[in-house]
Design a protein around this nucleic acid. Structure first.
Lengths: 357, 357
DNA sequence: GGTATTTTGAGGTACGCAACTCATTTTGAG
DNA sequence: CTCAAAATGAGTTGCGTACCTCAAAATACC
């Protein structure tokens, strides 16, 4: 009837007795300190295994004395998504200080590889852990590897550098995100035929490129009747995105779907809106005439657009989850605890009007 | 450039000095122990506020000595969703034992109010926290309130009893889930016209009733052209669901959408499949002819159906998240820590083939 | 005023581990 | 066998809090 998931509490002393050694030796083994014969190490580890001993987190934390320092290296400039991550870190402040964790924000120009690399190098030695919104570039990769070699735990956030030796990536699979967007656009367009437009920040950005790749993959295989127009590069700027899109809508009257890969949402929405008003003036166009609009991230703006019905779905990576996961992962890494992969995995959320968080 | 989110570490001793009292008095105030003049209480609390003092979690945990005991009261019987929750709790076992937390599973017949109430009463006094998959019934409500009065922290899991004094509910808003399902069915059906079927376990179950309510709400307001057929009650059994649905599909050739509210998915899929084969024999029916099928939860079965294209979308509440959130909330309640609402909120996930977790 | 009662201070112990010192034993090389 | 080096034991201290006891001081009551 009642089945227990945890064993009784053993202490280091019990392990020492079990292994027939002293507390000091167990401590040496546990912390990879030198001066223990390989055979003895084996005996101690066996005793730990046999009893599935877990050091008491609270005791360990209390004993080590000094607080841990983590740094978050984030893009400077007004990126609403990044601001949300910061805000959620702020909400954790009580949680953090109850655990004597210091989290510091470091702003840097993420799009300048050498500036980013310099910011990272500057952290060396002073921090137990670093979370960084990274750019995949050789200089950045080297800086990350240097941090890792110095014993700092490194987590890439939102944007990964897979070729580095970072300990963990907290973010979504952008190819899968693009595929999801493609499936949504295709399915929501339904029976209608026509063309699909893509607005991105830049195809040079790794995450944007991956999303576009995934999107095209699905369109090609599952919705071959929908022609995909060349990608517009709006540089994540509202004005530019609006102009480019407006021109495209002018030239192609048969656009039925739109995928906005990055930011610049305001401009995209405006261009779409102008077209809708225009259409309405010409004839009575209902939902059937409307362009299916799928974008990314739930912000104040996209939330409004979803509620108004201008936007049909947002692909979202939960910024709160990302902020908390980054902290938890850094903490687990620093403590040498296992990471709960399921918990820290960032999922691709489909957000429509009725499941707005 | 580098902005810190956490303050320097104060201790109780510092607070005592600040307030001009002894450590013992601070301790009395902190734990609501008697024997302190109201005026002194105020002074101490002011000092705590002023310095935004947070007791060191690790020290507190270490000092209290005894381990905490939590109980999970779950339905007996082979419910895949509940089994997933148990499995995820199992994955946490290292995490739990490192914190000296004991989690015990208690199986009970959740559909029998008096049995459930009895199970809850039996836990009284022995546990620091209880998570329960509850049934909204006066007897159960009373049992929950008794536990709360006895000082046990109580969290309802998956299914809520809002009228009780439980401390927290870990689960989704089922009305919103139903609305989401409705929006999906409506949008995915697209231009086609026809009828929509609903298969539920029972309209007597609170969560099923709420989902149906939300579903109908959206259908009535946003997709008035789609007629909703009376709810089939399959009792979450495969055979019964299949038979009922097969008969309905026979009678109504124009069914274009289906919402499966609960379990019995295997049977529902079989009935749909038989119809599809039948249609194919009569004419060449592509995707356009297929019934849009939206259901709940990602299990081995629904995963397969999504991949096969039989099912179009699953509304999912992440069982791993629910398991971990329940533990974290119970722990925070027991410690008197604030709850990170954002973190513990269970979201309504839309899962389609391309964002299968 | 004196007594009972309440409030406060002072101090100790324990929790489990990290990190350290120093003495002692064991081992291996010559 | 001798001696240095390596391995191990034994012990201490401190982390910040909970929880407890006992005495002293302050206050309330008659």
């Amino acid at each position: 009837m009642a089945e227990t998931l945890t064993s009784t509490a053993l202490t280091l002393k019990d392990i020492a007795r079990e292994a027939g050694v002293s507390l000091a030796t167990v401590d040496r083994v546990l912390h990879n300190r030198p001066g223990v014969r390989p055979d003895t190490v084996r005996r101690v580890k066996a005793a730990i295994e046999r009893n599935s001993f877990q050091p008491h987190v609270a005791a360990a934390e209390l004993a080590r004395g000094r607080a841990r320092r983590f740094a978050f290296v984030m893009p400077s400039g007004p990126n609403p998504f990044m601001q949300q991550i910061e805000a959620y870190l702020g909400e954790m402040s009580a949680w953090l200080s109850a655990r004597r964790l210091n989290v510091e924000m470091v702003a840097t120009d993420v799009f300048d590889p050498s500036a980013l690399a310099a910011s990272l190098e500057a952290l060396s030695g002073d921090y137990d852990g670093v979370a960084v919104v990274a750019l995949d570039h050789p200089g950045v990769r080297a800086a990350i590897n240097d941090l890792v070699d110095a014993g700092t735990k490194v987590v890439t956030l939102v944007s990964d550098v897979p070729s580095s030796r970072r300990h963990h990536y907290v973010g979504i699979d952008n190819i899968a995100a693009g595929r999801t967007a493609g499936a949504l656009v295709g399915r929501l367009v339904g029976q209608r035929s026509g063309k699909v437009a893509i607005v991105a920040g830049s195809q040079g950005l790794r995450d944007h490129a991956e999303r576009i790749f995934g999107f095209n993959q699905v369109m090609a295989t599952e919705f071959p009747d929908l022609g995909v127009l060349p990608v517009l590069e709006g540089r994540d700027e509202d004005d530019r995105s609006e102009q480019l899109l407006a021109r495209l809508l002018d030239r192609h009257a048969d656009i039925v779907g739109l995928y906005n890969v990055g930011a610049g949402t305001q401009g995209v929405a405006k261009a779409l809106n102008d077209k809708a008003l225009n259409d309405k003036a010409l004839s009575e166009a209902g939902r059937d005439k409307q362009v299916v609009f799928v974008g990314h991230d739930v912000t104040a703006l996209t939330r409004r657009l979803l509620l108004q019905g201008v936007m049909d779905a947002a692909i979202s990576q939960n910024p709160g989850h990302e902020a908390r996961a980054a902290v938890r992962v850094l903490l687990a890494l620093a403590r040498g605890e296992p990471i709960l992969r399921e918990q820290e995995k960032i999922r691709i959320d489909i957000v429509m009007r009725d499941n707005l968080p």
